[in-house]
């Protein structure tokens, strides 16, 4: 049984969609309240640590997409990255923290809180990480935080 089949079998009852946009990438979307369960099942498959946690601000859909990228050091699994994503509301971004599933989410989640304001429930230290401790503006990676745009744009064709 290859990896794709295994993942489909394991996750088909909780995932809202499973896609394969590139040969080395498996994208699994779940609902917000099933994230813990989905993460545990991915760990059972062998993807035992995270490469990244990121948030993407989608103001048009009034949502923030939180994306976890899991990878593995095992020989059979290491060519693949599993992307687990879910959406939280933009005005009340709350998500269960996954640091008990993936211990190295500690700093990655804290950074996502810092940069996008996603509150991870159960995370022991949601403090400023990269931004200065007296930061009181909106989180900078949200799309409505504007910085000056530089530049000359050259047209094509």
């Amino acid at each position: 049984m290859n990896l794709r089949e295994k993942i489909e079998e394991k996750l088909k009852d909780i995932a809202t969609s499973i896609e394969y946009p590139r040969p080395d990438l498996i994208v699994i979307a779940v609902n917000r309240d099933r994230i813990m369960e989905a993460a545990q099942r991915i760990v059972e498959l062998g993807f035992d640590h995270l490469a990244s946690v990121e948030g993407v601000d989608l103001p048009k859909e009034n949502a923030i997409e939180v994306i976890y990228h899991a990878e593995s050091y095992e020989e059979e699994l290491r060519n693949t990255i599993v992307e687990l994503k879910t959406r939280v509301a933009r005005d009340d971004p709350k998500l269960q923290s996954l640091i008990n599933v993936w211990p190295n989410a500690l700093y990655l989640e804290r950074e996502t809180w810092d940069m996008l304001g996603v509150v991870f429930e159960g995370h022991p230290e949601l403090k400023r990480l990269l931004l200065p401790p007296w930061w009181d503006d909106i989180p900078p990676l949200r799309k409505d935080y504007k910085v000056k745009v530089e530049g000359i744009i050259v047209g094509t064709k």
Binding site: P21, A51, S52, E54, I67, I81, E83, I153, V154
Partner: peptide
């Protein structure tokens, strides 16, 4: 090159640096 327009989508890449693996999305 001044205005490359990749089609909508996403891509990841991993590269081994001196310090370890860097991950891009």
């Amino acid at each position: 090159f001044a205005s490359l327009r990749p089609p909508p989508g996403e891509a990841t890449a991993r590269v081994e640096m001196g310090h370890g693996e860097v991950f891009y999305h």
